[in-house]
Amino acid sequence: MSDAAAPLSAEPVNEDPVVYKKGLGITAWLGIVWLGFISVAAILAPFLPLDDPNKGIRNPKKLSYFQEGFIFGTDEGGRDVLSRVINGGSASLTIALISITFGTLVGGLVGLIAGYFGGKIGAVLSSIFDILLAFPPLLLALTLVSVLSPATETEPPTRFERILIVALAVGLVSIPILARITRANTLQWSQREFVMAARAQGAKPLSVMFREVLPNVVPAMLSIALLGVATVIITEGGLALFGLSVIPPDPSWGSMVASQIDDLNITPHVWIVPSVIIFLTVMSLNLLGDVVRDRFSVREAAI
């Protein structure tokens, strides 16, 4: 803790700044345990002995923590907050997983190509990212959800369709930023001696790209993708604020929080519980990201 209090200009203590423990470390384990727990809970939600997350009008409303057998209380509709937050996890995590996987695969590949090959290909691809990035992402996602789930039809989209639509909209919006990051890092690494050397030795461009450049770019991609998961979970909340996330009454973490915009001090537990869970999840993903990145430390030594 004394470290945290050290002023910025303090002379750093004389120790190697980059000592790495190769073990996972307790915090990383905690992160893994939390992510495992929340994922398993989300997947098993329908089989767990929980109240129906969408029913509650006959229950007492606005109960706080640990009242009348409700661990996290009930919301203004009398629904069990515990059950909603666990069931909401499946929507939020599905959206995060699909959109970031989609964004990382597409954005990563495009960025790698743009950065490694440069020249015309690079310029054209960069222009495409520019075009996508020039749209304010939240607004683009809002519009995409509206366009993809036409409300004109009397038949609204089903629960899963809507989750897919939201994931797709958020994923599309995240492609260009992931692509740009990958490109910037690829540019940097493509100019390094060991890559040049591999080229000079006559290795095929694609093989140099995947063998020499990609492993070095992965850490940056991974850390941005993991931050991306955080951003996606938050963005989902932004969409929910404008009513464009999951279809009610199905819960998601973002929509649980957003529904409280006018009741912040009336039923604080209803937004605090999902917010804390979002925090723990985002945090855990990050700790995990650190670990993965350390393990990936490929660098020049790999050559």
């Binding site: 969408n54 009008i57 203004e76 509709g77 009454p249 529904s259």
Partner: peptide, 12 residues
């Protein structure tokens, strides 16, 4: 948020 609560109540 208010429109959603109304709708949820109606459905239930």
């Amino acid at each position: 948020p208010e429109g959603v609560r109304t709708a949820e109540f109606l459905k239930e």
